[in-house]
Amino acid sequence: MQKHNIQLVSSEVAPIWGGYIADSMANCVLQYFLNTVEDQEIRSIVEYGLGLTDEHIQFKNKLFENENFPIPDGFSDEDVDIKAPKLFSDIFILLYLRKMGISGVSTYSLALGSCARIDIREFFNHNLKTAAELLDKATTLLESKGIFIRAPYIEYPGKVEYVHKEGWMKGFFGDRRPLNAAEITHLYLNTTTNTLGKSLMIGFSQVAKSNEVKKHVLRGRDIATKHIEVFSSLLRDDNLPAAEIWDVGVTSSTTAPFSDKLMLFHTLSLCQTGLGNYGLAIAASPRRDLAANYIRLTAEIGTFSDDCAELMIRNHWLEKMPGAIERDAIDKQ
């Protein structure tokens, strides 16, 4: 039977192209972590994660070549100084690896569901499994070291219950019901994600060379601090513990291990992750005051994200994702 070369469709181009940029950035970050990590158990997980990014980049380079598709510039050795002094603690590196696993599982499951070509499906199916393994390795090590931050415990219900009050979704005034398990989960996850982001912004602010980039990441630090307090206060209102803060994961180094371009792109990527997380939280949180908080905080991240992108554009750092042909531009020629 004749074999036909089926062109990539948009839902395959998007995760392949976007993933190439993200993998090249992660590769730089993990190269630096590998050169600064001291704990040998954590080192082995850094090596595993670095091996995954190398594997992804090699597959995509070959795919782009076969498809006659221009390879994105992404990030390279010019964007990282692996000999720079240690900026982040080993515990921060381990927490970062766990978040990489979480992000990978989410990203690759979505990509797998949107792809048709068998080679692309096989690639993302493999990536989904290895991302889950990275997540498992990091979580297991955090638990063994006694530093894994668990979500709050809740008491098991004594019986099955149904909602009888029409005000069950209200949360602004009067008889506000306690948080349910799903709402607690998203508050916990968004607290821990913002905590890691805050530490990353603190580190970036110490080493950024451009005053504009430094000012921007400091703004990101302040936004993350504010969001942590909002989510933590909602948990405390129901006498639930808020996640611990890991700001101690940043050293006093002021030597930049990464280019300003990489740090600003990483900041933009965190914004995009946060927007997705808050969208999921809105869908899973029936209590209206929670949805209102998420919508308000989403708008704040959206504005910050736009400003990140504009700064990248001004510096000619933002690559354009392939898309539909600009027909109006052609017509005007």
Rank of each mutant, 00 (worst) to 15 (best):
S44P: 07
L187H: 11
K261C: 03
R236W: 14
G274I: 09
H164V: 04
L189S: 10
I93L: 12
A292Q: 03
D39A: 12
N180R: 08
R43W: 01
F69V: 06
I282C: 12
L311D: 01
I223D: 01
P286F: 12
L275S: 01
I21L: 13
I102D: 08
S103M: 13
A151V: 11
A256S: 15
G197S: 07
I6Y: 11
F75E: 02
A224M: 13
A116L: 13
K226A: 08
T303W: 11
V37H: 01
I228N: 05
H186I: 06
V80F: 03
K62T: 09
S252V: 06
L141R: 07
N194Q: 08
S253R: 04
I71T: 15
G101D: 10
I147P: 05
G174H: 13
K99E: 06
K86C: 14
R287N: 04
K62G: 10
D222C: 13
D331H: 08
A309C: 14
T192Y: 00
K145L: 12
L134K: 08
K60G: 01
E38L: 15
K165Q: 15
F265D: 00
L187N: 12
Y48S: 11
Q58V: 10
L142K: 04
G113K: 00
V230I: 15
S114A: 09
K3H: 07
M201V: 11
I202R: 01
A292R: 09
A132G: 12
V207L: 09
I91L: 15
Y278W: 06
S210F: 00
I21N: 02
M25P: 00
L63R: 05
Q40N: 13
G51V: 00
D289R: 05
A243S: 08
L264V: 13
Y294E: 04
A14Y: 03
D260L: 09
K83W: 03
A182S: 14
K62L: 13
V250F: 02
K170A: 11
L128T: 03
E183I: 06
M263C: 07
V37K: 02
F265Y: 11
T267S: 09
L262D: 02
L128H: 05
L134P: 04
E55Y: 08
D77Y: 07
S144C: 04
V46S: 09
D331C: 08
D260S: 12
